[in-house]
Amino acid sequence: MLVLSRRVGEQIVIGDDIVLTVVDVRNDTVRLGIDAPRSVSVNRAEVRQAVEEANREAAAAVDDDAVAALRALTAPREPER
């Protein structure tokens, strides 16, 4: 892990197109501004972890009735004659 010290207004550049700017520092909180292309996903680690856990729980909770209902929604159409 690379650890850098920055002051308010100073920036860190990652690659060619991601810029982190220190916006504010108060007590034990640092506010960062992130400038990145739309194709780059930027999320807080705890939010990403919560989404992954919710997805795992949802996948584990699948029952046969739910699967049958989903299959009925996406059943292929019969060809027209």
Results as ranks from 00 to 15, higher is better:
Glu53Tyr: 08
Val51Cys: 04
Arg81Trp: 02
Glu46Phe: 04
Ile18Met: 06
Ser5Gly: 13
Thr74His: 07
Leu4Trp: 01
Glu10Lys: 06
Ser41Trp: 00
Val23Thr: 12
Val30His: 02
Arg48Trp: 00
Met1Ala: 15
Arg44Gln: 01
Asn43Ala: 02
Leu2Glu: 04
Gly15His: 09
Val22Lys: 02
Glu46Thr: 14
Val3Gly: 02
Val30Trp: 01
Ala75Gly: 07
Asp65His: 09
Thr21Gly: 09
Arg7Phe: 11
Val23Ile: 12
Glu80Val: 14
Asn27Tyr: 07
Val62Ser: 11
Ala61Lys: 06
Val47Thr: 06
Val23Lys: 13
Ser5Phe: 12
Val19Ser: 10
Met1Leu: 07
Arg71Met: 13
Val8Glu: 14
Val22His: 01
Gly9Pro: 05
Asn55Lys: 12
Asp64Met: 09
Ile14Gln: 04
Ile18Thr: 09
Glu78Gln: 11
Asp28Val: 11
Asp65Phe: 08
Pro37Phe: 01
Arg6Cys: 04
Arg56Gln: 13
Val25Gly: 11
Arg31Tyr: 06
Arg6Gly: 05
Glu78Asp: 14
Leu4Ile: 04
Ile14Gly: 05
Arg7Cys: 10
Glu10His: 12
Ser41Lys: 03
Gln49Met: 09
Ile14Ser: 00
Ser5Leu: 10
Leu70Ile: 14
Arg71Ser: 05
Val42Lys: 01
Ala75Gln: 09
Ala45Thr: 06
Val25Thr: 11
Asp65Ile: 12
Val22Pro: 04
Val40Phe: 04
Arg31Thr: 08
Pro37Cys: 02
Ser41Tyr: 02
Arg26Thr: 13
Asp16Phe: 01
Glu10Arg: 10
Asp64Ser: 15
Val40His: 03
Ala60Pro: 03
Val51Thr: 11
Asp35Tyr: 07
Val23His: 06
Val62Phe: 07
Val3Tyr: 04
Glu10Asn: 10
Thr29Pro: 00
Ile34Glu: 03
Arg44Lys: 05
Val51Tyr: 02
Arg77Cys: 12
Asn55Pro: 00
Arg48Gly: 03
Met1Gly: 12
Ala72Ile: 06
Val40Lys: 09
Pro76Cys: 11
Asp65Pro: 03
Leu20Ala: 02
Arg81Ser: 14
Glu10Ala: 08
Ala59Phe: 05
Arg77Met: 12
Ser5Glu: 09
Arg7Ala: 15
Arg81Gln: 10
Thr21Ala: 10
Pro37Thr: 05
Glu53Asn: 14
Arg71Glu: 14
Arg38Ser: 02
Val30Ile: 13
Gly33Thr: 02
Asp63Val: 15
Thr74Gly: 07
Glu57Trp: 02
Val67Pro: 00
Glu80Ile: 15
Leu20Ser: 00
